[in-house]
């Protein structure tokens, strides 16, 4: 049962090539730095809680209309029928409204998790879900720090629902439905860099109206949605423990150790095998 050494190296070589190309593929999305992501600035100081965006979102995406609306003391969540919700929160500055939806992370955990690239960070910045690729493993849901992808548990051909920043509309040069329809100007669509500048300007010009923090600037490595608030974000029920670096960074160490192990370990094992075989021979003699 001796191994054919030539074969062994052939296979080892092949593994090496596969791993090397794999690595290249891992690196390619990194190029996104040279395009400018678009995002949305949401200003809860301006939001009046009309929840019109919930209706517009349902219209734009062919979903059912929500049955309830924002109500103090009730925390509504997005679900497989509703991609965005507006909640009312009692805070130190009175009732404040907050819209929630997928944050469109710069480096989305869901996209890194997805093994078929169904979850996909587009060059424009929107994180979209592609039906034909998804296998419904729900690893994106396990990984998303904001719990945003939602799954149709009661369907035999389930889809993942989450905000896509109206990718199709924006591709045609239009604004996302919620932004376009907001009667109070609480939403603004644009290049993320400009939105950040705008947000900072508002904080500087009205320091007593705004809490001095832009949620989404650094959270989870930066997100496409940026939030302004009159009160600290804890009061709005935001997870403020969210790490500042990206979530995919947590798996990078593991992913990059795979190639070396795949290549070196077989060689090591073969070496040990030869050595112990030798020893056994000597003992037998």
């Amino acid at each position: 049962m001796d191994i054919n050494r030539r074969n062994f190296f052939k296979i080892a070589g092949l593994t090496g090539v596969a791993v090397a190309t794999g690595k290249q593929l891992v690196a390619s999305p990194e190029k996104k730095d040279d395009v400018e992501f678009y995002g949305i600035l949401y200003d809860s100081v301006l939001c009046k809680g009309c929840a019109g965006c919930e209706i517009d979102c349902a219209d734009a995406n062919g979903l059912e209309y929500p049955e309830d609306g924002p109500e103090v003391g009730v925390v509504r969540k997005t679900n497989e029928k509703q991609r965005t919700v507006v909640n009312a929160k009692e805070t130190s500055k009175g009732v404040v409204y907050v819209k929630t939806q997928c944050m469109h992370c710069n480096e989305p955990a869901c996209g890194t998790a997805c093994l078929t690239q169904a979850m996909h960070k587009t060059r424009e910045g929107a994180v979209i879900w592609r039906e034909d690729k998804c296998m419904g493993c729900r690893y994106c849901m396990v990984s998303c720090p904001f719990d945003m992808p939602k799954f149709e548990y009661h369907s035999t051909n389930p889809v993942i629902q989450k905000c896509t920043m109206c990718y199709e509309l924006t591709q045609q040069g239009e604004e996302p439905a919620c932004v376009y329809n907001c009667p109070n100007g609480a939403l603004k669509y644009g290049p993320r860099r400009e939105l950040l500048a705008e947000a900072r300007r508002r904080i500087v010009e009205h320091p007593d109206e705004y809490h001095d923090h832009i949620y989404g600037e650094h959270e989870a490595g930066g997100t496409g949605w940026l939030y302004l608030s009159p009160v600290p974000f804890e009061e709005l029920g935001f997870n403020t423990n969210i790490q500042k670096s990206s979530y995919p960074a947590l798996t990078k160490g593991f992913i990059s150790s795979i190639a070396p192990v795949d290549i070196l370990l077989p060689a090591l094992l073969l070496g040990v095998h030869e050595a112990t075989k030798q020893r056994n021979h000597n003992e037998e003699e």
């Binding site: 890194t112 998790a113 690893y139 995919p248």
Partner: peptide, 8 residues
């Protein structure tokens, strides 16, 4: 479709 950066 290879999601090669995916642990899964």
């Amino acid at each position: 479709n290879y999601g090669v950066s995916s642990v899964l």
